[in-house]
Simulated scan of single mutants.
Amino acid sequence: MRNKILILDDDEDILYFCSVVFENLDFEVVSSPHSKDILEQVENAMPDIILIDNWIPGLGGVKATQTLKSTPSLSEIPVILFSANSNLPTLAEEAGADSYLKKPFDLDELENLALSLLRNKA
């Protein structure tokens, strides 16, 4: 069965490049430019992993991640918070994210991090 990723970012270029990376890994890709209805989006997609921008419109990455991690049925889905923010490690810890990735990032780094989290989840 194919893995599924939910990518939340309002930057169309980042959505495109991340989608291409994961489609090449045979992932089913679902994306969104906002986090307004984060629980509904995740429940509808039921992804294996989530990649969320810290500055995503709506709740924002930290609050959206906290919401997911406090929802028992969704809390085990690995979340990668990504941002150009200089205090990203602190934000990721505050959010309860499983990992973080500093923008700009190397696509191989993104791929390796996501696959590593999925292996650890299994």
Rank of each mutant, 00 (worst) to 15 (best):
K4G: 01
K4F: 01
I5P: 04
L6E: 02
D9I: 06
D11V: 12
E12A: 13
D13L: 11
L15S: 03
Y16I: 00
F17A: 03
F17E: 08
S19F: 05
V21H: 04
L25C: 12
F27E: 07
V29E: 03
S31Y: 06
S31H: 11
S32K: 04
S32F: 00
K36R: 15
I38T: 10
N44V: 04
A45D: 04
M46A: 07
P47F: 06
P47C: 09
I49D: 04
I49L: 15
L51F: 15
L51V: 14
D53C: 04
W55M: 11
W55S: 15
I56T: 05
L59V: 02
G60C: 11
G61R: 01
V62T: 14
T67F: 09
K69P: 03
T71P: 10
T71N: 14
P72H: 09
L74C: 10
S75L: 02
E76W: 03
I77F: 09
I77L: 10
P78S: 06
L81T: 05
N85T: 06
S86Q: 14
P89Q: 11
T90W: 00
L91D: 12
A92T: 07
E94M: 14
D98H: 13
L101C: 13
K102P: 00
K102I: 12
K103D: 02
K103S: 07
P104Y: 02
L107C: 01
L107Y: 14
D108E: 15
L110S: 01
N112S: 08
S116T: 14
R119L: 10
K121G: 01
A122K: 14
